[in-house]
């Protein structure tokens, strides 16, 4: 899945899920991020978190309509950005989280 770009790519993503960026999307994010060689970081409220660590993402209590900055750097950064942005922006209206 390499695209040989090695670019640092950044995207601000708004959380649309009414439950916020809760545990299930976090687990999906970590799983997706771990499939890429690129470094993945999330910035929320001025703090930077490793996007491949569930423990770190548990510290991101981003509610609905809040913004997080997704940052990827590495050989597959374009693909990673595309995929991870989708996971972050996903809406899920179920009560269970």
């Amino acid at each position: 899945m390499e695209d040989a770009s090695h670019e640092l790519l950044k995207r601000v993503v708004k959380i649309k899920n009414p439950n916020g960026f809760h545990m299930r999307p976090k687990a999906a994010f970590v799983e997706a991020a771990s499939r890429f060689a690129s470094e993945v970081k999330l910035t929320w409220e001025g703090q930077v978190f490793n996007g491949k660590s569930m423990f770190e993402l548990m510290l991101v209590a981003a509610g609905e309509d809040s913004e997080v900055t997704l940052e990827v750097f590495g050989s597959d950064s374009h693909l990673a950005l595309q995929e991870l942005e989708k996971v972050l922006a996903e809406e899920d209206v179920s009560v269970l989280d």
Binding site: N19, G20, F21, H22, F55, V60, A61, A62, G63, D97
Partner: peptide
């Protein structure tokens, strides 16, 4: 939902 997220964050921290 935000209180819930904050609780999970607090425990993890």
């Amino acid at each position: 939902p935000v209180v819930h997220l904050r609780a999970l964050e607090t425990v993890s921290r």
